[in-house]
């Protein structure tokens, strides 16, 4: 029983990590209908920049984070100015292709600026196991993962309030809902895009910090983006809570499958299980758990 609990908890914690990446996708998809292939690389880029700034200039963690946020905002502005603005009114697939290009540019840029070796990221997040759980219940839970979970919860609450209660949140929802109508009430698409990309850049930074603290800032980080795909299929591309719940289900399902089915069919389940789950899900609920149902009149 204790073992089952431990597997479940470690699955949920891994899921939180996926959710952090998936959140960034949802933000951009909601506001522009574009699947941002570069989201994973943005997390990597943010992580690299943070480590680089802290090492090069000996900044304390908080200053490094502030500086990185500034860099991410600048990046968002550049992306709008150099890419999005030129592709207004193009098909979504073209914008999607542009984000693939962006992914490679960012990866190269990070490499050129900060080098390609694995870097340790230590901003003073707690490490090791949560003692009392280990002592009293013999449960191994990493402090870092608890911190990630708490951060994710805070981020979702802040984003939810932001979207529901503030005028920029309202503008974001308006743009997501109907471009033309949004334009007619005077919302500037350019401003909205910069804001959305900035916010998702900051979300990417949080994801980069968590993954980086866990396993070092390295280029495989950008591959985590791919794991966010099944998370989004499950949760729905437009739902913030969906990204979280989807992440938890995928993380938990993966761990269960690995532990309980792994020995039967011979391991390595973690690599494909998430995609399998998402595929089955697509058959029954194509809009995802929390996605908006698409009803088209013919």
């Amino acid at each position: 029983m204790m073992f089952f609990l431990e597997v479940t908890i470690s699955g949920l914690m891994a899921g939180v990590m996926y959710s952090l990446v998936a959140l960034g996708f949802v933000l951009i998809f909601k506001a522009s209908g574009v699947f941002n292939f570069a989201q994973g690389v943005m997390a990597l880029f943010a992580g690299l920049t943070l480590v680089g700034l802290m090492e090069k200039f000996g900044l304390p963690p908080w200053a490094g984070i502030m500086a990185t946020i500034a860099v991410m905002i600048l990046l968002a502005w550049l992306i709008e100015f150099l890419i999005l603005r030129r592709l207004v009114n193009q098909e979504h697939i073209i914008l999607f292709m542009a984000t693939i290009g962006l992914a490679y540019v960012l990866e190269g840029l990070g490499d050129v600026m900060w080098g390609s070796d694995v870097k340790l990221l230590d901003i003073g997040l707690p490490q090791g196991a949560v003692d009392w759980l280990l002592d009293d219940y013999n449960l191994y839970v990493e402090k870092l993962e608890v911190a990630a979970a708490v951060t994710a919860v805070i981020m979702v609450i802040v984003l939810a309030i932001f979207f529901q209660k503030t005028r920029i949140g309202r503008a974001l929802r308006a743009v997501a809902d109907d471009h033309q109508a949004a334009l007619s009430v005077g919302i500037s698409l350019r401003t909205i895009w910069v804001i959305v990309w900035s916010v998702s850049g900051i979300v990417a930074l949080v994801a980069g910090i968590m993954w980086g603290s866990k396993s070092g800032v390295q280029f495989s980080l950008s591959l985590i983006a791919l794991k966010a795909l099944p998370v989004l299929m499950l949760g729905g591309f437009t739902s913030i809570p969906g990204a979280i719940i989807g992440g938890l289900i995928i993380g938990m399902g993966e761990k269960w499958a690995e532990i309980y089915m792994g020995p039967i069919i011979g391991g390595a389940i973690e690599n494909w299980f998430a995609y399998m789950l998402a595929l089955v899900f697509l058959l029954f609920r194509p809009q995802g758990l929390f996605g908006e149902k698409i009803i088209e009149r013919i």
Partner: peptide, 16 residues
Amino acid sequence: FKGMSTLDNIMTGRLP
């Protein structure tokens, strides 16, 4: 904005 309430829809008019 079909997903938003009447109030929120009219509020968007105050954005600019």
